[in-house]
Amino acid sequence: MIPRGVSVRDLLRSSAEGGGFVPPSSGDFELPPIFGDNVYTTKPIALVFLSVILISVFFIISSRKAAVLPSKLQFAGESVYTFVRNDLAKDVIGHDFLRFVPYLFSLFTFILVNNLFGIIPLLQFPTMSRVSFPYVLAATVYLVFHYVGIRKQGAIKYFKDIMFMPGVPKAAYILITPLEILTFFLVRPLTLSLRLFANMFAGHLLLLVFILGGEHLLQGVIGLKLISPFAFAIGIVLTFFEFMVQCLQAYIFTLLAALYIAGALADEH
């Protein structure tokens, strides 16, 4: 459960020199290139491409020999698709949900797999702990829900309803209009991305603290060696907790995307 080769060596060197435990920090998420000297060859980039390959291969194989009595693989694939289709698209967006299912399905599976990389042995790095990836995903949601709103209602009516909420006293527009503009064009994409990033970053950092702390205690005196199993045990418990958070964050991100799309399609939003 140690995803960082360089940082671990630094920790061991510090321990050997009597420098004490060096706690993990944000610098440990800045990984060097796997090869060459290019920012596009880092581990997070490689994991993103790996996630696309894994998702594609899994659903192609699970649906290749579809049968009335599904195999375990087909059942797993259909369960994920049905969950996104019914619980996230149909129930939230309503009668016009079908055309958004592919987007929401891709969004959910992509985020889920990249989150789960944080607890998979040998990989052990949640891609979404690098804020640039949540920013890009939030930007796609931002573009999609504004696009469908403009396409259905027309640009003038869509932006008019954003700036001047129907049914509100005119005097209240002085306060409400700036807040609505700020919400639709800045707060929504920022909170959507930062929520995902912060949860993945903080969860992975906690795992590093207890796992690397347990390793450090093993190198101490006998009393510290006896304490180290507790640190490892907490790390294991946190791993299961992190699994739930990773799944939950993929769900929340996709759910909010569906809610924003539903709001853009509503006659009054």
Rank of each mutant, 00 (worst) to 15 (best):
L11S: 08
L11W: 03
R13Y: 11
S14C: 13
S14I: 09
A16G: 08
A16M: 09
G18I: 04
G18H: 10
G18T: 07
G18L: 08
G18F: 12
G19A: 14
G20M: 06
F21A: 03
F21V: 02
F21W: 08
V22L: 15
P23E: 03
P23Q: 04
P23C: 05
P24S: 08
P24C: 10
P24F: 10
P24Y: 09
P24V: 06
S25D: 06
G27D: 06
G27T: 04
D28K: 05
D28A: 07
F29Q: 02
E30Q: 07
L31N: 03
L31V: 03
P32V: 03
P32E: 01
P33V: 06
I34N: 04
I34F: 10
F35Q: 03
F35A: 11
G36V: 10
G36P: 08
G36R: 11
G36H: 12
D37C: 09
D37M: 12
N38M: 04
V39S: 10
Y40V: 04
Y40D: 01
T41Y: 12
T42R: 15
P44G: 10
P44I: 12
P44T: 13
P44D: 12
P44S: 08
I45Q: 14
I45V: 15
I45R: 12
I45Y: 12
A46E: 11
L47N: 06
L47F: 15
V48R: 07
F49H: 08
L50V: 15
S51G: 07
V52Y: 15
I53L: 13
I53N: 01
I53H: 00
L54A: 11
L54F: 13
L54G: 02
L54P: 03
I55P: 04
S56N: 14
F58G: 00
F59M: 01
F59L: 04
I60W: 05
I60D: 03
I61C: 08
I61F: 15
I61D: 12
S62L: 10
S63Q: 13
S63A: 15
S63E: 13
R64K: 10
R64C: 03
R64D: 02
A66R: 09
A67E: 14
A67D: 14
V68R: 14
L69Q: 09
L69Y: 05
L69E: 06
P70C: 07
P70A: 07
K72M: 00
L73F: 04
L73A: 11
L73E: 02
L73Q: 06
Q74K: 00
Q74M: 00
F75I: 00
F75K: 05
F75N: 02
A76G: 00
A76H: 01
G77K: 01
G77C: 10
G77Y: 00
G77W: 00
